[in-house]
């Protein structure tokens, strides 16, 4: 049966889909503003979102602060590539990735990934894929400040797909 739903697959300009910010991230505000500006009401039936938030603990230690560094230019390009790949793999109306850099405190949102699609499967699957790809391929680095005021670089991200790991 013909569908009226026709996101312009692979032809749409997705360059507005990536934002790297230094100010506080309000994911729900970002989501609302983006949806009002870039999505067409009635066209999408599913919105899947992931929000990553800074914890006050890591690897058994208390964490009081964090500084996120990135590679300006490459980070945006890598995220754009990851988003373009998601549009190739799933039929999506749109994608938004917002990532904060600079100094953060526990409880601060770090990252928002949102996917809009006609149906939930594509939205859920693409959202998960985007988040895992961001974690493993986008050039960001975390430097933690511990409760004793010492600093350390986070050496690697956990594997979100590993069955014995519940921390994405």
């Amino acid at each position: 049966m013909a569908s009226r739903h026709n996101p312009t697959k692979n032809t749409r300009d997705h360059t507005h889909s990536v934002r790297i910010i230094t100010e506080k991230l309000d994911p729900w505000h970002e989501l609302t503003v983006y949806q009002n500006e870039h999505l067409t009401k009635g066209q999408f039936g599913a919105t899947a979102t992931f929000v990553g938030t800074m914890r006050d603990f890591n690897e058994g230690d208390g964490v009081t602060g964090m500084t996120l560094e990135h590679y300006p230019g490459m980070t945006e390009a890598q995220l754009q590539t990851i988003i373009d790949e998601a549009h190739e793999q799933w039929t999506l109306d749109d994608v938004l990735v917002v990532h904060r850099v600079g100094p953060l405190l526990p409880g601060d949102p770090i990252v928002l990934v949102a996917c809009w699609s006609a149906h939930r499967a594509a939205a859920f699957d693409a959202c998960r894929h985007l988040m895992e790809a961001l974690k493993s391929r986008a050039p960001f680095w975390k430097n933690e400040t511990l409760t004793d005021q010492s600093n350390r670089w986070v050496e690697k991200n956990t594997d979100g797909y590993s069955p014995d790991n519940n921390s994405v």
Binding site: I110, V111, A138
Partner: peptide
Amino acid sequence: VAFFPPVTGG
């Protein structure tokens, strides 16, 4: 040319 450790964003 850039050199960096494994990435840890998100």
